[in-house]
Amino acid sequence: MEKSANAPLLDVQGLSVSFATDRGRVKAIDDVSFRVEKGEILSIVGESGSGKSVTLLSLLGLNDPKTTFVDGSVAFQGKRLLELPDRALRRLRGKEIGLISQDPMTALTPVYTIGWQIAEQIRTHENVSKKAARLRAVELLASVGLPNPNEAVDRYPHQLSGGMRQRAVIAMALSCSPSLLVADEPTTALDVTVQAQVLDLLLKLRDEFGSAIILITHDMGVVAEVADRVHVMYAGRMVEKGTTTEVFDQPMHPYSWGLMASIPPLFGEKPARLPSISGMPPTPQQAPTGCGFAPRCRFARPECEARPPTRRDGDHSALCVLDGAERAAARRAVLGHEVDA
């Protein structure tokens, strides 16, 4: 539990999450490991149900402890989060780790003004007067770009537009200057122009506040724009990890290829139909013991029945049997000229 200078801000090792259901325990997250350095933006991508949100909620201890079983080790600033007593965890939540949730429409309690809700968080963690907390709320609202923050503090959530509410939620998450911001699909519920503004805002805040950000999304465009590193999740596992450049230029996992191939090309002729990955992702109940993607994979083979090995290329890694020249050939078959160019 020593705190060295180069220790990562957040270090997750072998995290597994299972839920109690009527038919016994179901594993939603299987042996997930990742780390977040100070001030970086890590993006976790994957489709709905791949376990992105569950991963983060269990880090914060926000899952229902009666039905959720979390294993593994999570170290945040040298503290082991999963073993922390409730009271100590609460002191970190909202203070050191801020959560920005997916849907700004429902994330705020409708009966309180946004200023009240921001001040509530500040006063929970810091011993300041109501007046001081309110002033801080006004400053925060100004810093997230809400026009007329003096008036906005006294607004109720239903009086604000979606983009404004998301800014208010972000302001609230930032209120105690957390060193880690967890953003669970912060742009999904917003329209495209507002999405761009919110992303710009996140980048600006990262530079101003120096917070690291874990950005959960299923939008590859968002990832390419803001992330330093990208982890791809599929069926409860991290199937590929690498820097944004590595993952976009030389993706290693067939699932990532599928994701890349489904992005419309910027140049050249537009295809009539974008390529898609056929089939549906498995639900946690029916996830295969071997590679979770094998049933939908063009390159599946008998070895995929077993747990896939980790292939590494420096810090870039993937969970797949394909390796070396064979992988390069398969990738070319899916992505064509785009990768070579």
Binding site: R90, R93, Q121
Partner: peptide, 26 residues
Amino acid sequence: QEDYVRTARAKGLSPGRVMLRHALRM
């Protein structure tokens, strides 16, 4: 089950405050 209660918990509020000021109030 609502998002606003999750937000309230993510803010680090005590369970009693989450219950009385957020869930019960609604």
